[in-house]
Structure formats: structure tokens, C-alpha cells
Design a protein around this nucleic acid. Sequence first.
DNA 1: CGGTGAAATTGACCTGGGTCAAGGGGGCGC
DNA 2: GCGCCCCCTTGACCCAGGTCAATTTCACCG
Lengths: 248, 248
Amino acid sequence: MASSSHCLSSAAHRSIRRTCVNCALSELCVPVGLDQQDMERLDQLVDRQQPLPANAHLCRVGERFSSLYAVRSGCFKSYRMDREGRERVLAFHLPGELMGLDAIYPGVYQSNIIALDVGGVCALPYNDLSHLAAQIPRLQEQIFRLLSKDLSAYAWLAGDHSAEERVAGFLLDLSNRYRERGYSDRAFNLAMPRRDIANYLRLATETVSRVITRFEREGLIRTERREVQLLDLDGLNQRANYCLQVSG
Amino acid sequence: MASSSHCLSSAAHRSIRRTCVNCALSELCVPVGLDQQDMERLDQLVDRQQPLPANAHLCRVGERFSSLYAVRSGCFKSYRMDREGRERVLAFHLPGELMGLDAIYPGVYQSNIIALDVGGVCALPYNDLSHLAAQIPRLQEQIFRLLSKDLSAYAWLAGDHSAEERVAGFLLDLSNRYRERGYSDRAFNLAMPRRDIANYLRLATETVSRVITRFEREGLIRTERREVQLLDLDGLNQRANYCLQVSG
DNA sequence: CGGTGAAATTGACCTGGGTCAAGGGGGCGC
DNA sequence: GCGCCCCCTTGACCCAGGTCAATTTCACCG
């Protein structure tokens, strides 16, 4: 560990301070729709943490809940262990997304959250945040909306979809989320190994691999290890069999 | 349909007005922990609706979101249809629970909600509620917590559990929720047919029936049509294989 | 009190996807 | 550059749970 005073002083010397105001993700993250003045109030409570190396844990099940975390860069995975010690992936988190929302109710983290590659987060101390939310209606509203959005995501995951529907739905979900972030929705690379995708979709790794191969043979997608191209979005949508698309 | 003016006048003649203050469910519902003064402010925005007959819809997918609904009596079911027109049950709602939370994000109801038997609800106009929440920190906090709690419920449903784990988990979940409401956690009756239970658990009706029969043979439970007795809670917990119990 | 229809159970059989096992690569440290 | 290890893919087989069909039970109703 480097001495903290050294870290602090080097951070202080940077000419451009990282703030919500100049953060490219502010339109996705908590401060959506806030004016500059409110953003500055939010800024003051945000704790911009040191980048985490790949496979480092941000928090673990059972730890006292203190902060929500916003992804600044990289990709994170939240998961639990079942009684037999098997991992259960609950979600992947892209930049601009808020993690730890399920810990609010019990006051204790309900998931382990781990960085899939090197990644940065902003910690939002929950007490301060909810206090501020009471003063800034748009902030309160945004937190309600983010919680509600997660409900819909879980509702999809909880549906009884076939393996094809799951894999197609997963790819389309990522595609949508990358588009929202200004990246290509047709070509992106998967931050996570097949094993994690399979676990998240409640399938075996082999099944995911087989479905991907099938989609490739049928010209729906093209893959090269973690690189994915979606060649036929309509075709994938057919396979995903969504019953309801949530409008932006 | 009876004329509404007649209904209104008969309601007005009641000597004891229904309010949150005298509602037995106030410790479960939104006003948990509010003082009398705040409860009265909440009272003013609550719209206590006429009881719904069995199988009547409270709201439907795609309708503009305006209110959250709190269950006052009876049992409700929320569900969607998939593209092939098959029903997908998402949740059952007992008295004191809040429905419609997943509609906040998109501003449009995401589920159909139907009364399983005759049931009453309070409508909470969302705009008024969130406005009030900004003024009453404990109310805001409670809404955050209720949303967060639903996340955990969906996370369980989304796990890949065996049929036995699902049925055991379902019975224990109901048991806990009945206990919280002051009813017996050992003997209760199911408001919903097996078909709905099976659909909710993403199983076939026949599978639910078989698992229930097995649990009965093994002395874990006793059933008589919709009546259920849980004879061995520990045994059921074994079968449910929870990885994490959410504390109160 | 018998008739009717939905709900529940039970049995026989089938299949989607899990499990087990055996290769291929590709990245990375030495 | 070489070897090691992990990731991914593919094939063969199996089983939990779905599907189909028959039967029983009960609530309701004339």
C-alpha cells in the first residue's frame, strides 16, 4: 500500500478535477436532469475512489451497507453464493449504472460486487444521498426510476425463457445499453467469460456456446472470442421473444 | 353498475372513516414509522377505492402510470403476456404490500394486476406521493426500502432452483409474509389456484402437484385443496436451500 | 340430488438442456 | 520461443421436468 498522503497530494495537483459536472456519464447516472447548482451539491458527497484492479471486490455479502456505487469505467459483476457454494451471477454493470440498490432494504449488502477488468467507481454514501434527494426532487425521482428499472431487468431474468431466448435477450440487452452510452450497438466486446454469461442466464457454459454457434451458423451474429457483431437485430429480436419493450 | 352518487353518499354516512391512522396495515404499508401528523398528510392523498370483485383488473400493461396501489384486503396477482399469449405470473400481493412499482421507470404499467378474490386497494397518486416523500424523509426512505425489497424477491425468483426448492421457497415466503401480518405462519390458505403457483414458479402445474404430494408423503406439510399446514419448517428450509435470508 | 365443469392429481412418455469427457486455441510468464 | 493454463467448443449420453392423457374431486346450480 502506498501512503495515503502521497496519493492525496498527487490527486490534488491535477489541474482538471473529476466532477459530476464534467463527467460524460452524468446523463445516465444519478444526476440525470440536474442543473449545474444541484450537480455541485451532489459532487460534494461523491467519493471518487481509486481504480480497482481486475477481480478486486468492491463489497461482499453481509457487509454493512453504507454506499451505493456508480460505475465510472470498466464492467462489474454482482453475484451471490448458494448454500452449496455455487456462484449465482445476478447482474453485469456498465459505466453509468448504479450498484448496490438491493442492499437498501436490509441495510446489508446482498451481493458480492467484483471488477471484471480494471474499473473505477464513485461511492455515494447512502445517508447523504437520501438526505440530498429529499431536497432535490429530480434526484429523488431519478433514484426511484433506477430502482424501478432494475425491477424490470430482474423480471426478465426471472421469466421462463428457452436457452435461445436467453442468449438473444442478453445480447440485445447489452446492445441497447452500449447504444445508450454512445458505443456501437452492433459490435462490442464482452467483458465477461462465457462461464459468467452462462451463470447469469442460468444455463450451462456448454449450452451458451452451442447457442452462439447456432446463431453464427444462421447468420444472426459473428463472434471472435469476446468480440461480438450483431448482424441481424430483427432476427435476434425474433429469437428473444420479448413480450414488452421498456421505452427509454 | 350502481350510480356513483349513491355509493359516495353511503360511504359518507359511515361514522368511522377509513384512514391510514386507524389502518391495521400501516406498520407494513407506506406509512411505517410516520408520526400521526405525517400520517394525516398521507391520508389526504390516499384514494380508498371501492372493493374489486374477484377477477377484476386493477390496471393493465401499457396504461399510463398514475398511481401505486396498496393492498387493503384480499390477494392480488400481477402478470404479463408473452408474445405467444401465454400468461407469466410475476408476483402475488398480500395486504399491506405496494403494487405497481415497476411502472415508475417507464411511466407505463408493466403488468396487469388482477384481484384473486374480492379485494380492496388504496390508490396512491404517484406525483403527490413523491412530492410528499421529499418533505417526509421517513416516507422517502420507506419507498426506497420497498423498491429494494422487491429487488430481492425477484432475485430469488430469477435463481436457478429445482422444482422442490421453488415450491418449498414459495411456501416459506408466504409463511413469512403471513406471520408479518399477524396470521398463522403454520396454517393458511392459498388464494390462488395451482396453475398460478406453477406459472409463478416457472413450473408445470403437474410438477407443483407432484412436489406437494411428495412433501406430504414426507410429512413436511399437509394440504386439503387450498388449505396448507406447514408441519416441519426446518425440513422445508432444508429443501428450499436459501443462500441468504433477508432480515426483517 | 344428480349434472356439469373447472381444478387437482396421477401415470406414461418425451425432450431441452445439463453433465461428463475430450480436444483446440490464445495469452502470458519465464 | 515454449509451455502452461484457462477459455471455449464439440460430441455423447442422461435426467429433471414438461407434455399428453386419463381419472378423481369438489363447488356450484338447476
